[in-house]
Simulated scan of single mutants.
Amino acid sequence: MPDMPNPVAAFIVGEIRRARGAAGMTQEAFGRGAGFSASHVSAVEGGTRAVTLDFARGADRALSNGGLFERLAMKLGAPSWFLPWLDAERGATQLRYFEPNLIPGLLQVEHYARAVLRTVDSLTDDEVEQRVKARLDRQAILTGERRPQFVAVLDEAALRRTGDGLGGIMAQQVAHLIALAELPHVHVHVVPLGSGLHVGLSGPFALARSAEGVWVGHLENQLGGDVVDKDDDVATLQARWESVRNEALPRRQSIDLLKEVESHHGPQ
């Protein structure tokens, strides 16, 4: 389920914590009723793990309050599928992105980002430009003072995509990837075309590790995306990350392949 925007989330968490205390429930007892571990409850109440609508519904079950917290969440702010992930991304010490079809947003150049966003025909020109700006603004985390270790695994097919005037854009995009991949905190790995079928072809995903050591994931889909923070689900994404990372070339060989692809696309 989508997460709630931060101001709403902070309010809901505070009310859940107060209601739990008023009911005389420990975090363990509350967690049993809500369907979450005591450590998960502690992390949500302590602000190190995102609160989801599933958690609010679990709190309603544990406290038998007729769906109060879910109604508050829906009334006080429309849930946003991306805001909580942006918070995790901004505060991460490590970021891992796997993308089989496109270049990850944090690595996109302006023209590539615009071309990708224009494929959504329901967006107006102004909306496309707003989203391009927001995407480029996000990239500041890779050059700021507290830069995370960033590891991206891309599919070679995404690098070789052509047509509809993409040649020049892709040459610029690949050159940008090469420049980023030479930075000590950025690692770009490419899954070669000859690797065949692998688990990552099921879809893109990302993982972020907070300063407290807590991992959360993000899954994209045609309707938006979901933040993943349940222990078992995060463990599944970690295992899939290891699988796709093992399919990719080492760092230096990946850079060599990027340079070969750049020459294929021709001059910028």
Rank of each mutant, 00 (worst) to 15 (best):
N6D: 13
P7S: 01
V8P: 00
I12E: 04
E15R: 15
I16H: 04
A23E: 05
A29W: 07
A38W: 05
V44K: 06
T48I: 11
R49E: 12
R49N: 07
A50F: 10
R57K: 14
G58W: 05
A59L: 06
A59D: 06
R61E: 14
G67C: 14
F69D: 01
M74Y: 10
A78P: 06
W81A: 08
W85D: 04
D87Q: 09
E89A: 09
R90N: 13
R90C: 10
A92R: 04
L95V: 11
Y97Q: 08
Y97D: 13
P100F: 11
L102K: 00
P104H: 08
H111M: 10
V116N: 02
L117V: 08
V120T: 12
L123Q: 01
T124V: 02
V128A: 11
V132P: 07
D137C: 07
R138M: 03
Q139R: 04
A140R: 15
I141W: 01
L142P: 03
G144R: 15
R146T: 11
Q149L: 15
F150P: 03
A152H: 05
V153P: 01
V153H: 05
D155H: 14
T162C: 11
G163R: 05
D164G: 04
D164I: 05
L166N: 05
I169P: 06
M170H: 07
Q172P: 00
L177C: 04
A179C: 04
E182Q: 14
L183D: 10
L183N: 05
P184H: 02
P184G: 07
V188Y: 00
H189C: 04
H189V: 00
P192R: 06
L193W: 00
L197P: 14
G200M: 03
G200F: 06
L201S: 02
S202G: 14
P204E: 14
P204V: 10
L207M: 08
L207H: 03
S210W: 06
V214E: 15
V214S: 09
W215P: 01
G217M: 04
Q222L: 15
L223D: 12
L223K: 13
G224T: 11
D233Y: 07
A235I: 10
A235N: 10
A235M: 08
L237M: 09
L237S: 09
N246K: 12
A248K: 00
L249R: 05
P250C: 02
R251Q: 07
R252P: 00
Q253Y: 03
I255G: 00
D256V: 04
L258D: 01
K259M: 09
E260V: 08
E260H: 11
V261H: 02
G266Y: 10
